[in-house]
Design a protein around this nucleic acid. Sequence first.
DNA 1: AGAAATCTAGACTCACGAGTCTAAAAACAT
DNA 2: ATGTTTTTAGACTCGTGAGTCTAGATTTCT
Lengths: 198, 198
Amino acid sequence: MDKRQAILAAAFTEFAARGYAQTGVDEVAAAAGVAKATVYNHFGDKETLLREAVAASAERATAKNLAAVERLVDTGGDLRPVLEDVGLRLVQCHCDEDSWALRRLLYAEHALLPDLLEIVQVGAAERVQRALADRLARLALAGRLRLTDPDAAVEQLTALLTGPLEARARWGTRRLPSKEMREVAAAAVDTFLHVYGA
Amino acid sequence: MDKRQAILAAAFTEFAARGYAQTGVDEVAAAAGVAKATVYNHFGDKETLLREAVAASAERATAKNLAAVERLVDTGGDLRPVLEDVGLRLVQCHCDEDSWALRRLLYAEHALLPDLLEIVQVGAAERVQRALADRLARLALAGRLRLTDPDAAVEQLTALLTGPLEARARWGTRRLPSKEMREVAAAAVDTFLHVYGA
DNA sequence: AGAAATCTAGACTCACGAGTCTAAAAACAT
DNA sequence: ATGTTTTTAGACTCGTGAGTCTAGATTTCT
C-alpha cells in the first residue's frame, strides 16, 4: 500500500524539520494525511517509524551516489571533464536537502540509535567509497592515473569534494547556488589531478 | 562561584551523551552535585542552560584551534614538518571528544537553536579559517608557498585534514588511534604541498 | 452483494519532565 | 553573633505526547 510510503515520507520530512523528540506521531500522521492509529498499525511504535524512515532515505541517497560513480569511465579522452562531471554529481548528492536532513538525523539521534548510524555508515558511505575506489583503481591500471593506494586517493578526493560544503552550506542551513557547487568540484578535481594525474 | 562552572560542565556532558530532549534538568543537577533549584537560580530555564553550555564549549574549542594555528610560523627551514605539526594539532582538536559532542549537539538541536549554529559557525569556525588564511598568505608572500587565493587554499587544507576523520572516526563514535591521526595529517600536508608548495 | 480487513476520528490513560514552591540548612558578610 | 543570601531536598502543578481503545466508515476480495 502506498499509505505506508506516504507515512515514511512524512515521517522523514517532519523528523528532519523539527527533530525526533520535538515531533509528535500525531503530526506525522497529519502530514501523511492518515490517522494516528494507521501509523501504529504499520510501524508499532515511534522508534521503529524513525528507523524505517531513515533506512529508506539512506537507501535512496546511496542509490543516487552510486549512480554518479557509475559515470566514471575511461572515455579515452581527457580525464578532467569526466572527473568534474562525477565530482559535481557527488557534490549535488551531498547538498541534497534530504541528504543534509539524513545526516542531521543520524548525528542528532545517535544517542538513541547508535546502531543505525553504524549500519548506514558501513552500508552506505563505505559502499560508495568502495565503488569509487574500484573505478580509480581501474583508471590507474589503464595508466590514466598515477596512484598506488586507491583507498587513500578516494579518501582525499571525497574530502576535497565534500569538506568545503560543510562550511559553505552552513551544515545544510544555507542553500548552495549551483555556481558554487561547480567551483568546489572543479577545485577538488584540479587538486586531485595535481597529485594523482598521469 | 564554581557551582556555575560545575553545572555548565555537567550540562554539556549530559546533553552530549543522551541528547537535549532526553536529558532531564534533574539529571544535570545530580551530575553537577547540585540541587535542581540551584540550576534554575543560575540559568532560568533549560534552553538557556543549553545555550550557555554550548557557548562555553565552543569558546574552549576555538581557543585550542587558534593555539594550533599560532604555531604555523616560518622557521626558515623546511615547511613540511611545521605544517605537519600544525595539521596534526588541528586533527587532534577535531577528534577531541568534546569537539565531536559539540558538533553533534549543534547538528542535532539546530531545529531548536538555529541561531546558535550560525553564531558558532561564524564566530568559531570562520575565525579559525581566517587565522589560518592569514598565516598562509604570509608564507606565500615570503615565497614559501605558491598560491594566489589563501581562502581557497585554507578551504582545501582543512578539507584534507578533517574530511577523512568523519569516516574514520565514524562521526565521533570510534576513538581514533594517534597513529591514524598522524597518517591523515601527513597525507593532507603531502597533497597540499604538491599543489601549493613553492 | 456481502464478508473481511483496514482505516478513521477522537476520546482516554498514563508516564515523564519542566518549572515552582516551601521550609530548613549552609554559607557568607560585617 | 546575627542578619542576609544562597542552597537544598522534596513535594507539587501542569502541560505534553506515546500508545490504547472503541465504534463506525471505507476499502478490498470473492
